[in-house]
Write a protein that binds this DNA or RNA. Structure first.
Length: 480
RNA sequence: GGGGCUGUCGGCUAGUUUGGUCUAGGCUUGUAGACUUGGGCUCUAUAGACCCCGGUUCAAAUCCGGGCAGCCCCA
């Protein structure tokens, strides 16, 4: 019996708990290809929600969606040396078509900068062509050799990648920040996952970028998860792909470019941050099903009246734009349904039984706290609307508190190591700004600098590793 | 990157140590029916499996080798 639901406790074996929730809730299944996964109905519906939200945001600021080929000629990928070196270890290649070998092998895109920018070179002539702001939703292949995990690290995943070209550095800087802010809003206001934002160090920046901005969340096991990145590519790609325009000054200039992306990894974050021992907990704003109505038709009770009432409530909710389903399956008992919908993370369950009918009420059960309340039929819709909002806010508040609890400021390397072992999470420490210290710390502890925060704080000590004068406080963590 | 472990009906598993009544057992699920329904009811009937390739052997789910797939732990 117990093996229908989640059998592992979240705080006892986090890793196994995650795997169980993902499989049993119906989010995903394993594919018969190593490191690949099947996005089932539930996770794909969440992904569609994310697409809907983000599309609305970027379209409002003049971006348009396009689709470029998934095959990239080797020669394109090679053009930007740093970019090529960064991606080549995990590129999957197509070397043969039918029976005959290809003249030039083709990369299955690990990211699309090169193929898109080769085309930008063709399209951009004048300052009047700028800015160009395109985005695509597509799949990506990175042939991971490390252990894979559904949503978090798979050989193929889904994402969106935005690619823009601008006349000036100022414009491109602004684009990087605008997108970062939209990402942040998506994560915090919709997915209810608070993030830290800042800039990556040179070691951790995107291969070929001038600088990379990032959004980082913390997971309950104390590991950081990179939720999204927005890069300023400078003129690196413009120079190798020869993307030039004639300015108002009648002179030739290279364009300034940005690229940015979020992936289905976000779904993994959502599972880890909000889920509990009973399964998924999906924030109302991204829940494919927001309300489930479970009728409770006793033998001898007026089942017809209960059903009629259930349908009436559903109609009213649907009218308000609340995604509602009525679970009228006769082969399952209410108790069974309760468990199933909890496993699937539906934010609110509405129970309607003889008792409710008699008192002209419905019973509301919230997924996040299991709290049950009775509300009068006339107030039901309003109460549900309010409760959805409250659940959304409460999930965010809870995650926010968890994030705050997982940030520790340390003033020595000893304390750093001790904290990392005992507690994990983000560790805020003073850093001299040199890659060497960062590398040594990574080697010795496995932690990397996740970000250099935008909000600068004066260093409280010298560099915790080398003792030289520190330039800033940065956030370290072990990460997924 | 390093280490450990696992693969048996759709799911969870017994059997593997010590090869042989294993014609592979149980629970759950599926299907048909009855009974129930406020937290995974109960009963009856029925369906369903040894990951793949090779080796050892009179005999392989069991031992050996390889492959494929998955999980966990550490960095």
């Amino acid at each position: 019996m117990s093996d229908i639901g989640v059998t592992v406790k979240k705080n006892e074996n986090f890793s196994e708990w995650y795997t169980e929730v993902v499989l049993k809730s119906g989010l995903a299944d394993y594919a018969p290809i190593k490191g690949c996964m099947i996005f089932r109905e539930l996770s794909y519906a969440i992904w569609e929600k994310i697409q809907e939200i983000f599309n609305k945001k970027i379209k409002a600021t003049g971006h348009k969606n396009v689709y470029f080929p998934m095959f990239i000629p080797e020669s394109f990928l090679k053009k930007e040396a740093e970019h090529f070196a960064g991606f080549v270890p995990e590129v999957a290649w197509v070397t043969q078509g039918g029976d005959s070998p290809l003249e030039e092998k083709l990369a299955v895109r690990p990211t699309s900068e090169t193929i898109i920018y080769a085309t930008y070179a063709k399209w951009i002539r004048s300052w009047r062509d700028l800015p160009i702001k395109l985005n695509q939703w597509c799949n990506i292949v990175r042939w991971e050799t490390k252990a894979t995990k559904p949503f978090l690290r798979t050989r193929e995943f889904l994402w969106q990648e935005g690619h823009t070209a601008h006349a000036t550095k100022e414009d491109s800087d602004k684009e990087v920040m605008d997108i970062l802010n939209e990402y942040r809003d998506l994560m915090e206001s919709y997915l209810a996952i608070p993030v830290l934002v800042g800039v990556k160090t040179d070691n951790e920046k995107f291969a070929g970028a001038l600088y990379t901005t990032t959004l980082e969340a913390i997971m309950p096991d104390g590991k950081a998860l990179q939720m999204g990145t927005s890069h300023n590519l400078g003129q690196n790609f413009a120079k190798v792909f020869d993307i030039k325009y004639i300015g108002e000054d009648e002179k030739e200039h290279y364009v300034w470019q940005t690229s940015w992306g979020i992936s289905t990894r976000l779904i993994g974050a959502l599972v880890m941050v909000h889920g509990d021992d009973k399964g998924l907990v999906i924030p109302p704003k991204v829940a494919p099903i927001q309300v489930v109505i479970v009728p409770i038709p006793y033998k001898g009770a007026d089942s017809a009246a209960i059903m009629a009432k259930a349908k009436e409530v559903r109609e009213k909710l649907v009218e308000k734009g609340i995604t509602t389903i009525l679970d009228d399956r006769e082969e399952y008992t209410p108790g069974w349904k309760f468990n199933e919908w909890e496993l699937k993370g539906v934010p609110i369950r509405v129970e309607i039984g003889p008792r409710d009918l008699k008192q002209e009420q419905v019973t509301l059960a919230r997924r996040d706290t299991y709290q049950k309340t009775a509300v009068k039929l006339d107030d039901a819709v309003h109460a549900i609307e309010k409760l959805l909002e409250e659940i959304q806010n409460s999930l965010y508040a809870k995650a926010k508190a968890a994030l705050a609890e997982k940030i520790t400021t340390v003033s020595s390397y000893n304390e750093f190591q001790w904290t990392l072992e005992a507690k994990g999470g983000f560790i805020k420490a003073a850093w001299c700004g040199h890659s060497r210290c960062e590398e040594k710390i990574k080697e010795e502890t496995g932690a990397t600098i996740r970000l250099r925060p935008f909000e600068k704080e004066p260093p409280i000590t010298d560099c915790i590793y080398c003792g030289a004068k520190a330039v800033e406080m940065v956030y370290f963590a072990r990460s997924y």
